[in-house]
Write a protein that binds this DNA or RNA. Sequence first.
RNA 1: GUGGGCGUCGCCUAGUGGUCUAAGGCGCCAGGUUGUGGCCCUGGAGAUCGAGGGUUCGAAUCCCUCCGUCCACCCCA
Length: 419
Amino acid sequence: MTKLYKAPRGTTDVLPDDQPYWDRVWEASARICGLFGYRRIETPVFEEASLFARGVGEVTDIVQKEMYVFQDRGGQQLALRPEGTAPVCRAYLEHGMHNLPQPVRLWYWCPIFRYDRPQAGRYRQHTQLGCEAIGEADASVDAEVIELLFRIYEELGLQGLTLHLNSIGDPTCRPRYLEALRGYYADKLKRLCNDCEARYQRNPLRLLDCKQDRCQPVIAGAPPFTDYLCDACADHFARLRSYLEDVGIGYLLNPRLVRGLDYYTRTVFEFQPQEGGAQSTVGAGGRYDGLIEELGGRSTPGIGWATGIERIVLNLKRQELAVGEPPRPRVFVAFQTADARSQSFRLASDLRREGIAAVVAAGERSLKAQMRHADALGAEYAAIIGKRELADGAATLRRLADGHQEMVPLADVAGRVNQ
RNA sequence: GUGGGCGUCGCCUAGUGGUCUAAGGCGCCAGGUUGUGGCCCUGGAGAUCGAGGGUUCGAAUCCCUCCGUCCACCCCA
């Protein structure tokens, strides 16, 4: 016996029983994105690898250890999309979208690939819904995209999400802050965990969200970025908060919120559920005013977010939120003898053409077995064709809920079902 | 990539060195007479106990390696 294949590590099958959850998230997303004037874009599953190295940042974990990189037969270095923003910005540039009214409002729903260690709610192939508003720096756009994501969660009925908000400045003020942060940490290095010693050199912002107990007291005393923002960034942040208050969206100022992608400037935010472990951030995003330029375009501001569909579905299930009923046939067509077979096959076909979901018995099974099957599928009616029906050009239509049944001419079955 | 928990039929679970050529429930399939479901009854298929190696007279049960999964990190949605 040969080995059974399994889905590769970190990948998952979305089975029919799960589809109602996915349908619901898709429906809410598409509708509300449309409501906010966002239009859907699809980009390829793979891109030139260097797009991500340039866009996301050469030294980020995503690029250094999580990208699926491969060479195609023509020798090109390609990468399976590890995040959604850089490709959308590439498309913005490639298709001259700066000629459209700004900002350009886009949303997407696509698979994302990261070679990570899998956990619940974390997959090597997962699906992200995201939006990008490109071409306008005003804080109202920051508030708009946050509200958009908030409304999607609200529509889905997700409870207990907290919006964490922070500003990590821009090239004017960030160096000043990093200097202050390094200064603060300089005499505390021996109290830190090993990771943080490395962070101090490489990526001091990351010192702020270390999870180690021993680092917490040091973090607690660290200067908050908001005290070091330049006037323009401080003003932007204040206006964003004011807009959020205008539309009734509560938030938690979290001076320790930093993001792992290099392109973020000013606004960063995350939606975190109350429970569900440390890997549970369900949606996150921020402003990336330098990204388009980094990718070779003119200086163009942008902001966006991404949210993990698998994590949303996980939370929907955790909250036992009801989703739509799974689809079931209205009519199950059963037959008694082999000579009634083609008649029942035709009846099922006719019913479907009338828009009635119909399934016909397959194989050689007793009528009893067929009826069991009809019940198991949750059909509303069983249409039975036996000798008598065959002779009369009719079918016995049985309502499964109460067992009421009568013989109906074949031509009238659809009408009777729809009554 | 690091550390830890777990891994028995499709699903849930019993069994922790011999009575296990592995038990039960759900689900699946078939019957309960002669054209019919749901309840009930009966029967059946389905697991070499994640894989490989070792210890032992003997292993699902102990050890090692690998794989998978879950948790905490790294990092991220």
